[in-house]
Each structure stands twice: as C-alpha cells, then as structure tokens.
Simulated assay, not measured.
Amino acid sequence: MQVGVISDIHSNLVALEAVLEDMPDVDRLVCAGDVVGYNPWPAACVDAMRERNVPTVMGNHDRMVATDGNFHGNSMARAGVEHANAALNDVQRAWVQNLPREKILYDGRLKLVHDHPEVQDRYTYPEAFSPSLLGDEDVLVLGHTHVQHHEVYDEGVVLNPGSVGQPRDRDPRAAYAVLDLDSLSVAEHRVEYDVQRVADEVREAGLPAATADRLLDGR
C-alpha cells in the first residue's frame, strides 16, 4: 500500500495544491495536523482535507481554533488563529473541532499524531527519533517541527514528512513523503511553488510581514 503523507499545511493553499499535483498515485493520503494557522487560506485547506475524507489529527494550531484559544507571546501564530477563526464557516469549524489527538490506521500498522506520541505539544526533532517512540505500530507519523526526516529501525519507521505550508529546514519548497507500507520504505519529496505569491497574499490579508518573510527563507 502506498500512503501519501502530509503535515503542517498551515492554510497555504498554493503549496497544498502543488503537493497534491506532484504526488504520485497513492492508495491513501493522511495528514499529521495543523491544517490551519499562519497563512491566508484556512477555509480552502480545511475543505481540501474534509472533502477528500483524509484521516487527519489535531495540531496545536487546529486546537487553538477548535477551542477559541490563542498563542501567548507569538504574534504570527496568534494572527493566523484569529484569521482562521474569522474565515471558517460552521461546517469547517466543526470538522476542526472533531479532529482527534491520534489515529491508528490500516489494521494498527500506522499511528498518526501531530507532535509526540506521549507528550502533547513536544517538538520531536530528528535527533530525538528512536525506536522507543514506536508502540505496537509499524510506522509512527508525526509533524509539528516542520523538519522533514525519517528513520527506519528494526522495530519500524518514524516519519515526519515535513511541512507543506511552512518549511523550517532552510528549504522553502513544500514537503511531503510517500510511505510504502508493505516494504516499510519512505520516499521524501520537495516541490517548488510560487512562494512569492503566498508572501504577497500574506501581507494583503493583513497577516504579519514576518510570516511572509519566513516562507521565503524556509524557516
């Protein structure tokens, strides 16, 4: 089974469309959360996942929208949540509110979380990857760091597909991965998209200029 794996879309419709167009034929598509936040198109990105019935877990930005909470001290994140709260209709908001913390898929072979399998909101960077993160599943998929990486162990695979909408590994291209669930192998992908257009739209929407600048730098 070929599984397309995405995460951290962050309301970047232009990047999401580029990823979906570039992705090879897959049997399934999964999303490790943070569909909303930061960028100008939260409603369209929610609809893209909702209408495709993509198994998706709740990221921390999704949770802030779902609970009408906010990020203290982070003006970029706070502005993105406020923008999403204003943009989503009742159906879209309900979809976000009903996202689970984790999903177990494909007869228990794949576990999908946003951050860390045991500690909510913990950033699990590549240097923290280890077989100890795995439970009974063959593959643990997580996001949150916006850093693309995977490791294959005797016990299974730990995979972060990177961020579709706001990479932070100094590569501004949108990131995703394709998992072969039969061979437990992973192909990491990067996709060019019109980053300048998104940066311009960020400013046009009244979102922080720093949000636009980090897209251009991949940080």
Rank of each mutant, 00 (worst) to 15 (best):
residue 127 E to R: 08
residue 127 E to T: 09
residue 127 E to A: 08
residue 128 A to H: 11
residue 128 A to C: 05
residue 128 A to R: 12
residue 128 A to S: 13
residue 128 A to E: 15
residue 129 F to Q: 04
residue 130 S to T: 12
residue 130 S to H: 10
residue 130 S to E: 11
residue 130 S to Y: 11
residue 130 S to V: 10
residue 131 P to M: 15
residue 131 P to H: 13
residue 131 P to I: 15
residue 132 S to N: 10
residue 132 S to K: 14
residue 132 S to D: 13
residue 132 S to P: 00
residue 133 L to M: 15
residue 133 L to G: 07
residue 134 L to T: 09
residue 134 L to C: 09
residue 135 G to L: 12
residue 135 G to V: 14
residue 136 D to K: 13
residue 136 D to V: 10
residue 136 D to G: 15
residue 136 D to W: 03
residue 137 E to T: 09
residue 137 E to N: 09
residue 137 E to Q: 15
residue 138 D to H: 13
residue 138 D to E: 15
residue 138 D to V: 02
residue 138 D to K: 15
residue 138 D to A: 14
residue 139 V to S: 04
residue 140 L to V: 09
residue 140 L to M: 12
residue 140 L to W: 02
residue 140 L to N: 06
residue 140 L to D: 03
residue 141 V to F: 03
residue 141 V to P: 01
residue 142 L to Y: 01
residue 143 G to F: 00
residue 143 G to D: 04
residue 144 H to C: 06
residue 144 H to F: 07
residue 144 H to R: 06
residue 145 T to W: 02
residue 145 T to N: 01
residue 145 T to C: 03
residue 146 H to I: 02
residue 146 H to D: 01
residue 146 H to T: 08
residue 147 V to Q: 03
residue 147 V to A: 00
residue 147 V to N: 00
residue 147 V to R: 00
residue 148 Q to G: 11
residue 148 Q to L: 11
residue 148 Q to R: 11
residue 148 Q to E: 11
residue 148 Q to W: 01
residue 149 H to E: 06
residue 149 H to L: 00
residue 149 H to D: 10
residue 149 H to R: 12
residue 150 H to M: 07
residue 150 H to L: 06
residue 151 E to Q: 14
residue 151 E to M: 12
residue 151 E to V: 13
residue 151 E to I: 03
residue 152 V to P: 00
residue 153 Y to N: 14
residue 153 Y to S: 12
residue 153 Y to C: 11
residue 154 D to K: 15
residue 154 D to P: 05
residue 154 D to H: 12
residue 156 G to R: 09
residue 156 G to M: 10
residue 156 G to H: 01
residue 157 V to E: 04
residue 157 V to H: 02
residue 158 V to S: 04
residue 158 V to H: 04
residue 158 V to L: 06
residue 158 V to K: 03
residue 159 L to Q: 09
residue 159 L to R: 04
residue 160 N to E: 03
residue 160 N to L: 04
residue 161 P to V: 07
residue 161 P to W: 06
residue 161 P to Y: 11
residue 162 G to W: 00
residue 162 G to C: 10
residue 162 G to T: 07
residue 162 G to A: 12
residue 163 S to M: 05
residue 163 S to F: 00
residue 164 V to W: 05
residue 164 V to R: 09
residue 164 V to I: 15
residue 165 G to N: 07
residue 165 G to Q: 05
residue 165 G to D: 05
residue 167 P to V: 08
residue 167 P to N: 11
residue 167 P to W: 05
